[in-house]
């Protein structure tokens, strides 16, 4: 019997086709309207912060903008990812796709890559809106300073306004915001391979998100005091696998104040994020590969 037709075990082209399709699905579902909310929020608070005189309005605006970006990208990733597998299964499109020479690994990778593209696009769009609003406010503040500040301290005043506005040192922080949302959607994908309903997926993902934000503090309080035994260490490591320390990604607070993010910290947190994404994706693949469709 002659050999069977040649088949490449992994084809980037197939993954790309799946990713493109997923992106198209999400875009045509009009998920981007969701981002209009972000624009309204940032522009609205830009108008609102004029009334704060005791604090630098640009500072406040930056806080709100980065915080909103973090929450919006997380929520977008969560809502988009949770529905992907259940929908394909309900519609039986999963059958048609997997009946083609497509491995389950390629399918899952394609789906996740589609979400990753979408989130990257969303974060870029949000950053553009954010930078635009901040820039506009910067101009207004400088104009006001020129009128109200005595000439001898004008240069210094303008300098302090400039440093509070959108600067290149925000970019690593924004990248970490993106990474956090990617991590959370990979986690959501893993949960959706286990769960049978998307409501459960969303709820459990939200719970893990919330716990992930407080777990660092809890661990500190729990382990920080007494001596640590090996058992406790293993225990806390396994807790950390299920509940990633998401607080690590919130370097936003520090950057917003104007201090630049230390590059060493950026790479450390970035590496950790990628590691989590890899682990979650491999787990998702293991579950999905053995799953009855």
């Amino acid at each position: 019997m002659p050999a069977s037709p040649k088949h490449s075990l992994f084809s980037p082209r197939r993954v790309l086709a799946l990713a493109h399709n997923t992106l198209l699905e999400l875009v045509r579902l009009k998920v981007f309207y969701f981002l209009l909310l972000f624009a309204f929020l940032v522009i609205g608070s830009s108008i609102f912060t004029v009334k704060f005189s005791f604090q630098n309005p640009l500072q406040v605006l930056k806080d709100i903008g980065l915080g909103a970006m973090s929450i919006f990208s997380w929520l977008l990733g969560l809502l988009c990812t949770a529905g992907l597998l259940p929908k394909d299964q309900e519609d039986r499109t999963l059958y048609t796709i997997l009946a083609k020479p497509v491995s389950r690994f390629e399918y899952l990778l394609g789906k996740l890559s589609g979400v990753f593209f979408l989130l990257t696009l969303a974060v870029v769009l949000m950053s553009v809106v954010f930078a635009g609003v901040l820039g506009l406010r910067e101009q207004q503040e400088i104009a006001a300073a020129v009128q109200n500040t005595p000439p001898e301290s004008l240069a210094q005043e303008i300098e302090s306004i400039r440093s509070a506005a959108f600067q290149a040192n925000l970019l690593p922080g924004i990248l970490l915001i993106l990474l956090k949302s990617l991590l959370c959607s990979t986690l959501t994908l893993l949960l959706s391979t286990i769960a049978s309903s998307s409501v459960f997926t969303i709820l459990s993902s939200v719970v893990i998100y919330l716990i992930g934000h407080v777990q660092g503090i809890a661990r500190e309080a729990w382990l920080g005091g007494g001596e640590t035994t090996a058992v406790l260490k293993v225990l806390s490591a396994s807790v950390a696998l299920v509940f990633p320390d998401l607080q690590l990604f919130n370097v936003v607070d520090e950057i917003a104040v104007g201090t630049a993010l230390p590059m060493a910290l950026f790479w450390q947190v970035g590496g950790l994020g990628l590691f989590y994404i890899l682990i979650y994706f491999l787990l998702a693949q293991v579950v999905f590969a053995s799953r009855e469709l």
Binding site: S4, P5, H7, Y95, T96, A99, K100, P101, V102, S103
Partner: peptide
């Protein structure tokens, strides 16, 4: 997976 190279379903 390669068994599906030559099938339409």
């Amino acid at each position: 997976v390669e068994s599906r190279e030559s099938v339409g379903f």
